[in-house]
Amino acid sequence: MIVSKQVQNVLDFIQKIEIEENLNPWEANRAFYTNFIPLAGKKEAVFQITEQTLSDNNNSINLRIYRPNDDEKQPVIIYFHGGWFNAGSLETHDTPLRQLANATQSTIIAVDYRLAPEHPFPAGLNDCEFVVKWLIENALSINIDPEKIIIAGDSAGGALASSITRKFRSKIAVQLLIYPVTSNDLKTASWIEFQNGPLLDLKSGIQAWDWYLPDNYKNDSDAIPLLANDLSGLPPTFIAVAEYDPLRDEAIQYAEKIKKAEGSVKLNLYKGTTHGFFQMGGFIADSKILMQDMVDFLNNTVITK
């Protein structure tokens, strides 16, 4: 494995992160992940950023809404953040989502779904589903074009995005999956090659799935996208994978499965990069390349049509 100087600088930065010793394992994961924020670089100004809380029975779901302009009936990207199902927040992805809102000139709704292990599957997925239902029902009143709903997510958020797109396929115009989690098997060639990292490792993968997935859901395709067999009729799909990422091969397998179901997929491999580079735009140039690739894909499939 030969990483670029940019990636090596990121790895050096991460190596120096210090976490309080008195935290439990998942709290330590969250603190560690939050410390990645400076890697994303400078925060761009956005026309309007607001926050909203939805209530689903006794559960509150926080949203952050990025509006790049005041146009009527804007395309909308509903975004589910990564973090191995047990970390991540509205803050961890704030910088790249500002950039994505400006680049695509689309409203972005970031979803602060519940995390494991306190809230194992299907709690987080249920939150995401509730938000999408709410948006579909209220699209016009919140100035969203109901014909241009885009589902997106990175890593664990990519797993959630995959399942949500399947559930709402007739309502979704495009899905954007950034190095998505698609399997709990952890036995692909890329998992074997990169079982010790960089960034993700096999031990953390096993722990993440153990926290997230109760025994009675071990074969649930809503949790494990690669197990899904109902992939016909999906919207155009963009999948980004990093060369030095244990998740690389399972994402490629998911792309191939969509193709076998006669779906339209654009699969982009970013060579020399590692998992998480979407959030590392202050260091890694491929983050901006990925951003532009998503803009181009959306322009060709939904936004300008």
Rank of each mutant, 00 (worst) to 15 (best):
residue 288 K to P: 00
residue 104 T to I: 07
residue 294 M to C: 02
residue 196 N to E: 04
residue 112 D to V: 11
residue 201 D to G: 05
residue 102 N to K: 14
residue 304 T to Q: 07
residue 277 F to N: 00
residue 133 K to P: 07
residue 259 K to Q: 15
residue 125 L to Y: 15
residue 25 P to S: 05
residue 51 E to V: 03
residue 59 N to C: 11
residue 167 K to H: 08
residue 195 Q to Y: 00
residue 297 F to M: 00
residue 174 V to I: 13
residue 253 Q to K: 15
residue 215 D to W: 04
residue 208 A to S: 14
residue 10 V to Q: 00
residue 146 P to F: 12
residue 278 F to V: 03
residue 39 L to F: 06
residue 254 Y to W: 15
residue 222 D to T: 11
residue 56 D to Y: 12
residue 62 N to R: 09
residue 1 M to H: 09
residue 112 D to P: 12
residue 202 L to G: 06
residue 31 A to G: 08
residue 225 P to N: 12
residue 25 P to C: 05
residue 294 M to Q: 14
residue 13 F to M: 08
residue 79 Y to S: 10
residue 286 D to W: 02
residue 153 G to I: 10
residue 47 F to S: 13
residue 93 H to E: 10
residue 149 I to Y: 04
residue 65 I to N: 10
residue 129 E to C: 13
residue 187 K to A: 09
residue 85 F to H: 02
residue 158 G to A: 09
residue 279 Q to F: 01
residue 6 Q to K: 11
residue 12 D to Q: 13
residue 229 N to C: 11
residue 108 I to K: 09
residue 215 D to P: 00
residue 303 I to H: 00
residue 226 L to F: 11
residue 167 K to D: 03
residue 234 L to E: 05
residue 278 F to N: 04
residue 6 Q to P: 03
residue 149 I to N: 04
residue 144 I to V: 15
residue 58 N to E: 13
residue 80 F to L: 13
residue 135 L to P: 03
residue 14 I to E: 04
residue 262 E to R: 13
residue 292 Q to N: 09
residue 7 V to F: 10
residue 301 T to R: 11
residue 233 G to F: 05
residue 292 Q to V: 03
residue 188 T to C: 01
residue 209 W to G: 02
residue 52 Q to V: 06
residue 208 A to C: 05
residue 230 D to Y: 13
residue 14 I to R: 05
residue 141 S to K: 15
